[in-house]
């Protein structure tokens, strides 16, 4: 038994080592390698290809089918319902971040939408001007001190991430609403979970089609954009104001002038 575990671990380590990108020695290539910070690129690209295959064959066709059989109003109701469920996560993470404003607003939104918005189908909280924040466990870890986590990771079925946010994703699974859904009967839990993925995918059909169509290297585009956007979300969670620099978009832009 011990031998099997040892062999399994050894093959796992060998797989990871084979999947590491070779660090270039030439200075310019090394600069790009360090800017990219993707030492597991070969492995990440394989997982990205797998995720795209699942998306092309199952998720996107299901999302398109869902769009075909529903009206815009119905879909807004479904999105509101899931957004309302996620307010429970926003409440917990707001509290873990010791942020009373975010906690109380998420709580108010959840109560208003659950009781006056027919279990969250209607977003009455926004009509009442209660601000909406998305808050997750990755942001909480950043607030707790793990501010920088740049090494790029692609998680199977979950997509772009980094070590801190991968741990955050695990944290999201063991806190509401995910943990409440897993406590339900499989007949309720599975449709509820799959439904969430489908409605999220439906909302990004045009955006991802545009991105895919216009990219010369789709993997690199998604890596760059998801990382920059995530950094903004983390900056917001850390309460970094506009004057606290540098932000991810505040890089040097020097030009040779064209005349």
């Amino acid at each position: 038994m011990k031998k099997h575990i040892f062999l399994g671990m050894l093959s796992g380590i060998m797989f990871l080592c084979c999947s590491c990108a070779t660090k270039p020695t030439q200075p310019e290539q090394l600069k790009i390698y360090e800017e990219t910070n993707d030492p597991l690129e070969p492995l990440n690209r394989s997982i990205f290809a797998f995720n795209n295959l699942v998306d092309d064959t199952i998720l996107k066709p299901t999302a398109s089918g869902y769009r075909a059989v529903t009206t815009k109003t119905m879909r807004t109701g479904v999105t509101n319902f899931y957004d309302n469920l996620s307010e429970t996560r926003n409440v917990i993470n707001g509290a873990l971040q010791a942020n009373p404003e975010k906690t109380s607003n998420a709580f108010k939104r959840f109560m208003a939408n659950t009781f006056w918005g027919f279990f969250g189908l209607m977003d009455v909280a926004s009509d009442m001007d209660i601000p909406k924040y998305d808050n997750d466990f990755g942001q909480t870890l950043a607030v707790w001190g793990w501010e920088t986590s740049d090494t790029y990771l692609v998680l199977p079925l979950m997509g772009p991430s980094n070590p801190r946010d991968a741990l955050g994703t695990a944290g999201n699974f063991i806190t509401p609403p995910s943990v409440l859904i897993t406590m339900m009967t499989p007949w309720t839990a599975y449709p509820l979970t799959i439904g969430n993925y489908v409605q999220m995918r439906e909302r990004s059909i045009e955006f991802l089609d545009n991105l895919h169509r216009s990219s010369t290297d789709y993997y690199a585009t998604v890596r760059s954009m998801s990382r920059q956007n995530r950094q903004k979300v983390i900056n917001d969670a850390l309460g970094h104001t506009e004057t606290q620099t540098p932000k991810q978009y505040e890089f040097d832009m020097d030009f040779d002038d064209f005349e």
Binding site: E35, T36, T221, S224, N229, Q231, K232, Q248, F251
Partner: peptide, 17 residues
């Protein structure tokens, strides 16, 4: 847009290509 720089995204994509 939402933290994503057009110039940096193109640069990362093209240098990777």
């Amino acid at each position: 847009v939402e933290g994503v720089s057009m110039a940096m995204s193109y640069r990362n994509e093209y240098t990777s290509f």
